[in-house]
């Protein structure tokens, strides 16, 4: 049976400890070939959701199917088999600091394919680096790269095995405007040329809305809005509205909970 959904999440709930659920009744699906964004405030649970899709966490309730497999029943070998078809870009790249750019990109190739002939390995790595525009930096060490370059090398590494599903954890954090544009265009181009599916977890609204096909909006562990980028921009939902337009006050208040101002300044005492 043709399984068009790459990721299918039904009624999933999760909490690191039973008293405080981090995710509540999540219903989510990601069709093949799409670039989907999962957005929300810090702490809304989006990174936890990403970890669950990765297979690092198991749902407390509900089912999670990724690439046709139910993640709940996976043993170590099966989990690793699933991950070989996935690529993940970590927030700050997570490059191996003791290896050069070339060796970093070659790492997954070496580990999975053992004895690849040197020429073939070299060409494959160069191919991936070319796709992100860093073929000339192959012999540099991670410490010598700027933030944007390091992020691109990490991207090249995550597509080294031509994955079917690519996950992005806050790919735009801490980048300058030029790198912003570079990364977002790379995400779209790589997705389309590899015929893959991409999930972007981010709170960089404007940049992400320009790249994705569909958005899921999360707050306090629930999905509160979803739709195509235009729908989201026009959304009347107060939280989404505040988030997209960057308003100071709204459902997420400016003031942290505190007793009355007068009482604190002891005006009442005079």
């Amino acid at each position: 049976m043709q399984q068009p959904q790459i990721v299918e999440i039904r009624d999933v709930s999760f909490g690191y400890d039973a008293a405080r659920p981090v995710l509540r009744d999540i219903d989510l699906e990601i069709p093949r070939g799409a670039v989907v964004g999962i957005m929300g405030q810090s702490g809304c649970g989006k990174t936890t959701l990403l970890r669950m899709i990765m297979g690092a966490l198991r749902p407390a309730a509900g089912t999670l199917r990724v690439l046709g497999r139910d993640t709940a029943g996976l043993g170590r070998e099966a989990l690793y088999a699933m991950r070989r078809e996935m690529g993940m870009l970590f927030q700050f790249g997570a490059l191996f600091t003791d290896l050069s750019v070339f060796e970093n990109v070659a790492f997954p190739l070496r580990e999975q394919h053992g004895e690849l002939p040197g020429e073939l390995l070299h060409d494959l790595v160069m191919l991936k680096l070319e796709a992100v525009g860093l073929r000339g930096a192959a012999q540099l060490m991670p410490a010598e790269l700027s933030g944007g370059m390091a992020r691109r090398v990490a991207l090249a590494r995550s597509i080294a095995l031509d994955p079917r599903l690519i996950l992005y954890d806050e790919p735009f954090t801490g980048l300058d405007p030029i790198s912003f544009g570079v990364i977002s265009r790379l995400i779209r181009n790589l997705n389309d040329s590899l015929g893959a599916t991409s999930i972007i977890v981010t709170h960089d609204v404007q940049e992400a809305l320009g790249v994705v096909d569909y958005v899921y909006f999360m707050a306090a562990g629930r999905i509160i809005a979803q739709g195509a980028p235009d729908e989201i921009r026009r959304s009347r939902e107060p939280f989404v509205n505040q988030f997209v337009n960057g308003q100071r006050d709204g459902p997420v208040p400016f003031h942290y909970a505190a007793p009355s101002y007068a009482a604190d300044l002891e005006l009442a005492a005079t």
Binding site: A81, R83, R84, M86, F90, Q112, L161
Partner: peptide, 11 residues
């Protein structure tokens, strides 16, 4: 720096 997690992700 999440290098260990990255390795996990690369199986």
């Amino acid at each position: 720096t999440e290098q260990l997690s990255a390795m996990e992700m690369m199986a």
